[in-house]
Design a protein around this nucleic acid. Sequence first.
DNA 1: GCCAACGTTGGC
DNA 2: GCCAACGTTGGC
Length: 153
Amino acid sequence: MPRYWLMKSEPGCFSIDDLKNAPGGISPWDGVRNYQARNFMRDDMRAGDKVLFYHSVTNPGVAGVAEVVRESYPDHTAWDPENNHFDPASTPESPRWFMVDVRFAHAFARPVTLREIRNTPGLEDMELLRKGSRLSVMPVTQEQFEIICALGG
DNA sequence: GCCAACGTTGGC
DNA sequence: GCCAACGTTGGC
């Protein structure tokens, strides 16, 4: 049974086009430094799960769809002092942060904006819309996933 | 265990 | 740039 997620990224940092242009359209989803988001990736994501790729900050909205192709493994960027997401508390012997690999599936012809999500019946319960929500990795229902794909064309 | 201070996220 | 909301840290 495939399952469904929404993952946020600032397009200035990593956009859906960056994923599309990565080798094989595959990239690690690194840099997550929030325990709840980490737990979703580490404990619950399975290869084959579908992902709504959400662009935050600049024209916030869902830009397209990706798929989980590798289940969780340690996020080595946490071990690199030169990396923005360096965390000295994480070590190769005892990794604190984990990531998955995702593969580009497709980009929506028309991004589904946050405003549109807010105004579409059937999407009002999305975690994304919860006031103050900052989760960067969150589950969505199959119904929510399909409504957004239909809006995206 | 409490909670104030701080840094970050992210919409607008 | 502003600021509300949140998560983490660290003193006590």
